[in-house]
Amino acid sequence: MAEHPTSRAPEPVGAYPYTRRVGNLLFLSGVGPRQRGQRGIPGVEVDEDGNILQYDFESQCHAVFQNVRYILEEAGAAWDDLVDVTVFLTNMKDDFPAYNRLYAEYFATAHPCRTTLEINALPTPIAIELKCIAVLRD
């Protein structure tokens, strides 16, 4: 088993690696839209207490997908190597249609299994997080 650091994706918000390889499978920890070296979150405006005032969900989707791509590439995998994606949304009612549309665009050739869940909150003021599994083709 090996951990794979990344220099392009945002720093993890806790004590965990972004990836873990077991055999030919690559497991990605939850990936959100934050950007490396930046305090802000794409498309999110918060008040001084960290409460979300407004957010642009599509900006977050694009950022999450880019972060997943960064992590995969630095671990020796590619977008089309994804075999399973679990998606956590904080507002299924309002955000699922945009998410589903963007997902279809990003995954036009890759067709991983997918599960989408609505959750109450994520550790930072984000509206989407992906948990992925990829297969490594050595």
Rank of each mutant, 00 (worst) to 15 (best):
M1L: 15
E3T: 14
H4K: 10
P5R: 04
T6L: 06
R8K: 09
R8Y: 04
T19M: 08
V22T: 14
V22M: 13
G23N: 10
G23C: 09
N24D: 15
N24L: 10
L26S: 03
L26N: 05
L26T: 02
F27P: 03
G32V: 02
P33H: 03
P33K: 04
R36Y: 04
R39M: 15
G40P: 07
G43Y: 11
V44T: 06
D49S: 11
G50I: 03
L53E: 05
L53Y: 02
Q54E: 15
F57R: 01
S59P: 08
H62W: 13
A63L: 02
F65S: 00
R69Y: 00
R69P: 05
Y70T: 00
I71T: 06
E73W: 08
E73D: 10
E73S: 08
A75S: 09
D80Y: 09
D81V: 12
L82E: 02
L89Q: 00
N91L: 07
M92Y: 13
F96H: 09
F96G: 01
P97E: 09
Y99F: 08
L102D: 05
L102T: 12
F107G: 02
A108N: 00
T109K: 11
H111E: 13
P112H: 03
P112G: 01
C113S: 14
R114F: 12
T116L: 12
E118K: 07
I119R: 08
N120K: 13
L122F: 03
P123A: 09
P123D: 11
P123H: 07
T124L: 15
P125W: 00
A127R: 03
K131C: 09
R137N: 10
